[in-house]
């Protein structure tokens, strides 16, 4: 497999009025092209900080991140799906999906077709002309996934994208995410604190622990897909990750 992203000795320190926070310390991680990586850990363990560094929202204190062998620049193509509903309320579902294509100056006709294609991917083509506030929470996040994928980004970064949804919708969207991943073969980094979700989705699970934020272990998940969250191996793996997070 080809290494897509290489993270070396990554460190993030920031100062609050009270104290200096070591958000990340000595993080090393190689991500292969087309891999589905889940980042898990208790709050304050730095998993979201790492994602935000990859997204370009947070500056690196020390260490390097390279993509395809080159140092990461701010303006590489990445798709981000946020936990909050981040769709633009003044744009319809289709217009939201078109946004990244507009930025890249695609002609209108092409934009439209591509937007439909990705709305079809998340099974929402019939709702193309709906404004976000007329869509349910789950549908909004599906549009957000389509928006993040439409301009063919190098990687997809997802920060607890389904955290605000009810359990059943969440399951449905996890299944959809796997489907989208298998169809598009994108490299995905997925932050979650839901361990069952991590085992269901990831090829590998990167387990973070706090103070300072660092990687405890990287767990490979070799269960065949579609995965059954009630299978003994699934539950065993989930328990293993749970132990890693809590006892250190």
């Amino acid at each position: 497999m080809v290494t897509k992203i290489s993270i070396q000795n990554l460190r993030k320190v920031y100062d609050t009025p009270e104290r200096r926070v070591h958000a990340l310390e000595g993080v090393n991680l190689n991500i292969e092209d087309g891999e589905f990586i889940c980042l898990v850990g208790l709050s304050g363990c730095g998993k979201t900080t790492l994602l935000n560094m990859l997204a370009g929202f947070v500056e690196i204190t020390a260490g390097t991140i390279t993509m395809d062998g080159k140092t990461l620049t701010q303006d590489y193509d990445k798709g981000v799906v946020f936990q909050e509903y981040a769709l633009f309320p003044w744009r319809t579902a289709r217009q939201n999906v078109e946004y990244g294509l507009e930025i890249r100056n695609f002609p209108e006709k092409e934009r439209r077709e591509m937007a439909f294609e990705f709305l079809r991917l998340v099974r929402l083509e019939e709702f193309a002309d709906f404004f976000p506030h007329n869509l349910s929470g789950g549908m909004r996040q599906r549009v957000a996934v389509a928006r993040a994928m439409a301009f063919d980004p190098q990687i997809l970064l997802m920060d607890e994208p389904f955290g605000a949804l009810d359990a059943q919708t969440r399951e449905e969207l996890q299944e959809l995410t796997v489907d989208v991943w298998q169809k598009t073969k994108k490299t995905i980094l997925y932050v979650t604190h839901n361990l069952s979700e991590a085992v269901y989705l990831g090829n590998r699970i990167v387990v973070f622990v706090p103070n300072p934020g660092r990687i405890r272990e990287i767990v490979r998940v070799d269960l065949p897909r579609p995965r059954d969250d009630l299978a003994p191996e699934f539950i065993k793996l989930q328990k293993h990750v749970n132990d890693l997070i809590r006892d250190f």
């Binding site: 997204a55 370009g56 929202f57 303006d75 193509d77 990445k78 798709g79 981000v80 946020f82 909050e84 509903y85 981040a86 769709l87 633009f88 946004y99 990244g100 930025i103 890249r104 928006r147 993040a148 301009f151 970064l157």
Partner: peptide, 12 residues
């Protein structure tokens, strides 16, 4: 701010 971050993430 999340709208702005979303736009930034798409390199606007």
């Amino acid at each position: 701010p999340v709208w702005i971050r979303a736009a930034q993430s798409m390199n606007a």
